[in-house]
Amino acid sequence: MRKWFLACAISLFVAYSPALAIAATPVDISKENTYPNPTQDLPYLQPSPFAKQLIETANVKIENPELIRLLNESSVSSTPFALGYRATIYLGQWPLNYQSLETSTNWEYQKVNTNFLDNRGGNTAQKLYYKQEMQKHIRGGLTAPVPNEEAVKKMMLLTAMKKTNLPLSFSTVIGIGTKKDQPYQVPVKKLGYLYAFSPAVNEKGKVTYGEVYIVLKGNKKKIVVKNVMTQGVGAWIPVQDRLSFLYIISDQPR
């Protein structure tokens, strides 16, 4: 009985209201997408035993995959005759780690398509389907420039993927002709508009920079980080192969 009343109420609302908007749950289009987006597979780089030993001596947490890769490719030989040996090796200024403060998803980040059906002259309800009319390239990025942007973006991407469990990438494409078989009913004397949106994750936090030195003293090796500074950073990261829909029934063209 409650379902019957609800159906009647919706029918009356559609018949007499100038517009009805219906938001749909985000859907996966990875199988239907005519553009094969490459999988964004960023492995959590594991430090080598030597790199791990060095990282554990650092006075600041080091998580930058590029710096870890550099340390993995390095080696220092130990010798019993290095008693008075001293050396300091400057590796440069690096973004060392990223701390996430806020992660949220905007399911209507960018409108990518509009499908339309005019049933004002029809005698029966018609069905409207989603079909991508043009290829769309959705790009994300940092909200403000920071030093060593690519390394910062990689750390933010890894963090956001882990927190949201979504397929994220700073660049994704919706191919022309992509479609779904979910029908949207357009009543008699109405117009139907189906808007498709590409979602994106908004990641906000802070990145820590510092000048990195490897200090050798005899057979002892350690990392010293100097001139440490922290900077706020934000980014929009599109969600790959996902769309959210907004369906509007209207009396008049929009």
Rank of each mutant, 00 (worst) to 15 (best):
S100D: 09
Q110D: 12
R2P: 01
A160E: 05
W107I: 07
P238C: 03
N202Q: 15
S74E: 01
W236Q: 08
G92P: 05
F5M: 13
P145D: 00
G210Y: 03
L70T: 14
N202K: 15
K163S: 15
D181G: 13
G218W: 06
R86W: 15
L166N: 01
V233K: 05
Q252A: 15
G92W: 12
Q252L: 14
N33L: 00
R69V: 09
V146P: 00
A200L: 02
G177F: 05
T103R: 03
R69C: 12
E149Q: 14
L91F: 11
K180G: 07
D41W: 07
Y184V: 07
S104I: 06
K153C: 04
R139T: 13
I237M: 03
S169M: 07
V224Y: 00
T172R: 01
K31D: 15
S250T: 12
S78M: 11
T172I: 03
N37P: 04
K179H: 15
T79F: 10
T230D: 06
E108F: 06
L83T: 09
K179Y: 12
S171P: 04
K189I: 04
L83S: 15
V188G: 02
P49W: 05
L20R: 07
L246R: 13
L101F: 12
L54T: 06
G92T: 04
K131E: 15
E203A: 07
K52R: 13
K180Y: 02
V212C: 03
E63T: 10
I176R: 15
L45W: 01
S75W: 06
